[in-house]
């Protein structure tokens, strides 16, 4: 089973096969995938032809995909009309499906698979039946089907099947025996996390969605990047060949010097000299209030009437001068291209 095809096919199952559903409330039949596997939801009030046609149409969309699956039949607005079950059986044979269970469609799973396989007799509790009359006991029907060996008109449940009938366990077991291989595999359609419609889960393939090499980078010089924990005190000269990160303040009277870029995650109040010996570089600080800024061969200082900054700022060379801009999460355009 190709998981991608599965996703594609099952995405479409909730759609109604409208041309066949006219006289009934709701679609005649649906084919859907659940956590427990493939399920045919049959509207008991729909004409048998409509039910079979609807299911055939769905199965014909991807016959190879469904081949070999176990399928459960869930009946809504039951009971199954006369002859429906044998037609379903034929359908299953035609598409190489195995009907492993027939039950009333419920919000919750009425019959744990294990119980059936174990061969305990069917009871009303097992099927979770709360509908008073007109309820079929599917296992019984299947048993009848098996014993009679083929198509047989099945009387509507109201004629006497409302009472649970004890059957010989052996008979029942044979009919509803679950394919051991199927049982061992709780996911016959190989859907993985996508089997549950209700929950959207990402497929964990372990591969990154975007190749990392596609990200633009500022090359690191051979000396690497240095990460210094501040504060850098007055009178200290901190030098590095490469990029320099300082976690803390650079106090007035301190000098930080680098051949690469300088990033101060604190207040830059001393002197910083970035891009020594280069033409391009920047100085970024959470609070840029330096005594002096130097980038490459350019020098600048804050204006005499400058007020203390309230945002992070980045300083870089534009044209002939050092410009200072607010840094709000992106490198300035002309800097990003030139660096």
């Amino acid at each position: 089973m190709d998981p991608s095809t599965a996703a594609l096919a099952l995405d479409e199952t909730p759609s109604v096969i409208d041309e066949l559903s006219a006289p009934v409330d709701g679609p005649a039949a649906l084919l859907r995938g659940t956590a427990r596997g493939l399920e045919m939801v049959v509207n008991g009030r729909a004409p048998v032809d409509a039910v079979i046609a609807a299911l055939t149409a769905r199965l014909e969309e991807a016959p190879a995909f469904f081949r070999g699956s176990n399928v459960r039949i869930a009946v809504e607005h039951g009971p199954l009309p006369a002859g429906c079950l044998s037609r379903l059986d034929d359908l299953a044979v035609a598409f190489a499906l195995s009907i492993i269970e027939v039950g009333a469609a419920k919000a919750k799973d009425p019959v744990p698979r294990a119980n059936l396989a174990a061969g305990s007799g069917p009871t009303a509790e097992m099927f979770g039946d709360e509908e008073p009359t007109g309820t079929i006991k599917p296992a019984l029907l299947l048993a009848q089907l098996a014993s009679t060996g083929g198509a047989q008109p099945i009387a509507p449940a109201s004629t006497g099947l409302s009472e649970p009938v004890e059957l010989a366990p052996a008979e029942l077991t044979e009919m509803v025996e679950v394919d051991p291989a199927g049982q061992a595999e709780p996911d016959p359609l190989h859907l993985g996390a996508a089997a549950e419609f209700a929950v959207e889960e990402p497929t964990h393939t372990g591969k990154a969605p975007i190749a990392l090499a596609a990200m633009p980078e500022i090359p690191a010089p051979s000396e690497g990047t240095r990460l210094v924990i501040g504060p850098v005190r007055s009178g200290v000269i901190l030098e590095h060949e490469g990029h320099l990160f300082i976690f803390g303040d650079v106090n007035p009277g301190a000098e930080v010097r680098a051949t690469g870029n300088i990033i101060v995650l604190g207040r830059l109040r001393g002197t910083a000299h970035a891009a020594i010996g280069q033409d391009v570089g920047f100085i970024l600080a959470l609070r840029l209030e330096p005594q002096q800024l130097r980038i490459g061969r350019r020098v600048t200082r804050a204006g005499d009437d400058a007020s203390p900054p309230t945002d992070s700022e980045i300083a870089y060379i534009a044209g002939d001068a050092i410009v200072v801009e607010r840094y709000l999460g992106k490198l300035p355009r002309n800097l990003a291209t030139s660096i």
Binding site: R233, S234, G235, N251, P252, G253
Partner: peptide, 12 residues
């Protein structure tokens, strides 16, 4: 404060 900062650097 400026001088004290210098001294703290030397002390550390």
């Amino acid at each position: 404060i400026r001088d004290a900062d210098r001294v703290v650097g030397l002390l550390s």
